[in-house]
Design a protein around this nucleic acid. Structure first.
Length: 899
RNA sequence: GGGCCCUUAGCUCAGUGGUUUAGAGCGCUCGCCUCACACGCGAGAGGUCACUGGUUCAAAUCCAGUAGGGCCCACCA
């Protein structure tokens, strides 16, 4: 063999009894073969040439998985879809690029390493930033990237030569560059604001990283005594501990109960402070006591009220959510401890009016699951409105398109209500914020001097901002940063914008919408034209798969058990765009069984092939046998169906169409007729046709089941070293080899044969027992000839040893009858016919037909229908009624005949 | 509070440019180790397409509403 032939050795032939397909050996070798031949690598020059010629290369940016992640079913689903699209387009001759890579995943990765170090007795803070980051890098070196190998197991044909990591040096540079640009454009600003503070990770997070969870809580009604006279005002709160930071009471300006109290002061219980009562529209007279405690430093609405009334903003918590020095006796207590204590103290002081159960929605950090504490803090933000406008405009202009379309509503809704993005994170693992500060004599940041925004250190001695950027601040650049932007690289010119993004709806806001905005803002172009939203994988009960529930299904277990091809095929069949998938392992049996079918079907002709011989058909289409012309017709129809379905991103429809073609048409009908009898040989012409169609189906199936198809590709014919299924030309529908008449004739024979089989089954005649059959056609001579010439079909498929075809055949005594349209089949069953059973059978058939005819006639008797519906439709209905009548007549005549 | 999705055979789901007798996989029934495949072959049973009303010649499909399930966003403390 030539040196460049990297084909794996064929799997050891299994022994005669073990006929089930074993994917393990077949799937082991081909990935190296593909990679070795560089089939995954997109060629920039070819891509550019295609773009110049007006055809865009086909490009998918792979959603980069977390560097420390493991493959889960969601990845497997999306990869199965993406790889199918990539392979299909590559076979079509479109330069195709699937860009792989990984995300540094700031908080997630830092947490993993922090936990690991803690288990070893090492605290992050003790060893310091630099040492900690060394640990993280070491961890990433050792355990990172496993997920990419797992994708290889699935057969993902991504271009590894273009692999990127969001924390690579050059990527890091791009991120920092972007920060500087946005700052200079006035789209990044720094400020003290109330942010979502995660006390567990001790960092700010964005609004999108907060989940609101409904919980059973309590509402406490608390008395605040007036400062200057007797009595009190009662407020209701779900968070009594925050009262330590109250700086006002608010009542509605038109709330008559309180109008004369506005401007007076109350004594804040448990502290020695007095605070004013202010009038603010935000207080709802209908809710609670109508009076509202105002804690500007720990509540978003209160913060706004505070601004309106120029109230003091008093932060009472430390970053770890313990009470700070403003909490007096409660200093040092955790916020929930403090709550208990404060409630107890209020109760003791007689200031607690009542406590009632109350459902509240609690903000939870999606990262740590800790309860978010709104906290004033100095952070960096991106001003989003100008970017959102771009994103909305792109959709309006039709520059991006969602599949399924309804997801654009979510996209629009989010962008319409866009809020500024908190991008700074108090972490160490991530892209350092490119901002520099002057230091004073004590080495502290000199707040009196302006900071400098710059990638490089502007002056010796300046210190860089300690914080890093939100992970998504790097991910949103993925589609163009991976292609070399901001350099005008050849890759960028050839492969940007990409074609389609395949992702789940869970990251529509986090990632997809932001990529659109970044693409538009920085490159002036959308990052991708199509957005294919997949559903999410759920367990059999419809619950999210999670570690804590232990209900996850590991794709690698499934690959081991069923094979990668089976997993990929099944996932593609199950995947209706935008719809969640309830998954259980048994779902993969469909794919496994199919792979087994494919494998075994090859043997039907494979065992007759001479090694090394290239079988080529010499017969023209017209010279082919009827079933062969039918098969080619079905093949060509299926190619059209597949192309059409894939054009709408309906890979499930495409996969099922090929499945049907292969199993129902090719195996169940064609092969059953093509395979030789007993010890006979298969002639070369038959082998050639069997191979030809099988080869075409191999190509159609390759995007879904790359391994088994590649294996069989090399068994079908002698192949040159570089000849591979992955690089084969995608089938094109051949109208010259499509014969609707043959298809129709064969379809009729299928019905007749099924009818005869049905009679035999009904009367308990063994399928292997030969029977006689008379086909009484409704008077068309050419059809008679056709059927007559193909008695062999009836013999092979229904064991009809004597077939009579005619137009005026008399029904033999003691025959069972099947009526197909206006045609009849008589099956003489002397001695076996059960008159009562036959009568029942015919009666049932009559009943069904009459029901059908009645519904058609009802339509026809409606004058509105006949006058208003298109003539063509009415005619079709008339024909249906006439056909049904003819069939019923035939059935009745046969019934009468029974006596 | 606003919005979206789902409800089709025992189970899991396709199908909604309106018009053949609504499909698949699994399960079920009957018969088959028919020399490619029991991960298989043949033949069957099984559905008033959640409910109500409307539009239409014609509705599983379009519109309105109702019920049940799920999700997203907002959040009057």
């Amino acid at each position: 063999m030539p040196e460049t032939d990297l084909r794996p050795a064929p799997p050891v032939t299994q022994d005669a009894d073990a006929t089930a397909y074993d994917p393990t050996t077949v799937e082991a070798g081909w990935y190296a073969f593909w990679e070795g031949h560089d089939f995954f690598r997109a060629d920039t020059e070819r891509g550019q040439a295609q773009r110049d010629a007006g055809t865009s290369p086909f490009v998918i940016p792979m959603p980069p998985p977390n560097v420390t992640g493991r493959l889960h079913m969601g990845h497997a689903l999306q990869d199965a879809v993406q790889d199918a699209l990539i392979r299909m387009n590559r076979m079509r001759g479109v330069e195709s690029l699937w860009i792989p890579g990984m995300d540094h995943a700031g908080i997630a990765t830092q947490n993993v390493v922090e936990r690991k170090l803690r288990a070893e007795g090492i605290e992050r803070k003790q060893i310091g930033r630099e040492a900690f980051l060394e640990h993280v890098w070491a961890y990433v070196e050792e355990f990172g990237g496993i997920i990419l190998d797992q994708k290889r197991r699935l057969g993902a044909s991504c271009d590894w030569s273009r692999e990127r990591f969001t924390l690579d040096d050059d990527y890091n540079h791009v991120v920092q560059d972007i920060f500087v640009k946005l700052y200079e454009q006035g789209l990044i600003y720094r400020g003290h604001y109330l942010v979502n503070w995660d006390p567990e990770n001790m960092t700010a997070i964005s609004d999108e990283e907060v989940d609101n969870v409904e919980r059973d809580g309590q509402m406490w009604w608390i008395q605040y005594p007036y400062a200057d006279r007797d009595g009190h005002i009662t407020i209701a709160t779900t968070r009594p501990e925050t009262m330590l930071g109250d700086t006002a009471i608010a009542v509605h300006p038109e709330d008559e109960r309180y109008t004369d109290l506005v401007g007076q002061r109350v004594r804040l219980p448990l502290t020695d402070r007095t605070i004013p009562i202010v009038a603010d529209e935000h207080a709802n007279p209908e809710f609670g006591a109508g009076a509202l405690k105002v804690t500007p430093a720990h509540d978003k609405n209160d913060f706004e009220i505070g601004k309106r009334h120029d109230l003091e903003v008093l932060t009472i918590m430390n970053p770890d959510a313990t009470i700070n020095e403003h909490g007096g006796p409660y200093e040092g207590l955790d916020r929930f401890e403090a709550r208990k204590q404060i409630v107890a103290d209020l109760d003791a002081a007689g200031l607690l009016d009542k406590v009632e159960p109350y459902k509240t929605s609690v903000p939870i950090s999606s990262r740590s699951k800790a309860v978010i504490e709104p906290l004033i803090s100095r952070q960096w933000f991106v001003k989003m409105q100008p970017l959102a406008d771009l994103g909305l405009q792109a959709l309006r202009d039709g520059d991006i398109r969602f599949y399924p379309e309804r997801w654009q509503n979510e996209y629009v809704r989010w962008l319409d209500n866009i809020r500024d993005w908190t991008i700074s994170r108090q972490l160490w693992w991530g892209h350092r914020i490119p901002v520099w500060y002057y230091v004073d004599a004590d080495g502290e940041i000199d707040e009196s001097r302006d900071f400098v925004v710059s990638v490089e250190q502007p002056e010796p001695g300046m210190v860089q901002d300690e914080d890093v950027l939100d992970t998504w601040f790097s991910s949103w650049l993925w589609p163009f940063a991976t292609l070399g932007w901001p350099e005008e690289t050849d890759d960028l010119k050839a492969f940007y914008p990409s074609t389609v993004l395949v992702s789940g709806y869970d990251i529509l806001f986090f990632w997809i919408a932001r990529m659109v905005m970044a693409g538009l803002h920085f490159t002036g172009n959308v990052p991708f034209r199509d957005i294919y939203i997949t559903g999410m994988i759920k367990d059999a009960q419809g619950r999210w798969m999670s570690k804590s529930l232990g209900n996850g299904i590991d794709p690698l277990d499934m690959i081991e058990q069923y094979g990668a091809d089976a997993v990929r095929f099944s996932l593609n069949v199950l995947c209706t765009p935008g719809q969640d998938i309830k998954l259980e392992p048994s779902k993969f049996e469909m794919g496994r069984n199919f792979a087994n079918k494919i494998w075994n079907a090859f043997n039907v002709f494979g065992r007759f092939m001479e090694p090394g011989k290239d079988y080529k058909r010499t017969r023209s289409f017209d010279e082919l046998d009827l079933v062969e012309r039918w098969l080619l017709t079905r093949l060509n129809q299926t190619v059209k169906t597949v192309d059409e379905a894939v054009g709408r991103y309906r890979l499930n429809e495409a996969a099922l169409a090929i499945y049907d073609l292969f199993w129902r048409d090719y195996c169940d009908w064609y092969l059953e007729l093509a395979k030789p009898e007993f010890g006979e040989q298969m002639d070369d012409e038959t082998i050639a046709l069997a191979i030809e169609v099988y080869e075409q189906m191999t190509k159609l199936l390759h995007p879904f089941m790359p391994f088994i198809t590649e294996e069989l590709w090399h068994r079908l014919r002698p192949r040159e070293a570089g000849d591979a299924c992955i690089a084969a030309a995608w089938p094109e529908a051949n109208d010259a080899e499509t014969d609707p008449d043959a298809a129709e004739a064969f379809a009729l024979m299928q019905e007749l044969i099924s009818g005869i089989r049905g009679v035999k089954s009904q009367y308990g005649v063994a399928p292997s027992k030969p029977v006689e059959a008379l086909v009484n056609l409704a008077g068309t001579a050419p059809l008679t000839e056709t059927l007559d010439a193909h008695g062999r079909y009836f013999e092979r498929l229904a064991n009809v040893d004597r077939l009579t075809v005619g137009t005026d055949l008399a029904k033999p005594k003691a025959s069972a009858t099947v009526v197909i349209g206006s045609h009849e089949v008589f099956v003489p069953l002397a001695g076996m016919i059960d008159l009562d059973a036959e009568r029942d059978r015919l009666l049932k058939a009559i009943e069904e037909k009459e029901g059908f005819r009645a519904s058609v006639q009802k339509k026809l008797s409606n004058e509105q229908f006949t006058s208003r519906a298109p003539a063509e439709v009415v005619e079709r209905e008339r024909q249906k009624a006439a056909d049904a009548s003819a069939e019923i007549d035939k059935l009745r005549a046969n019934l009468d005949d029974l006596g």
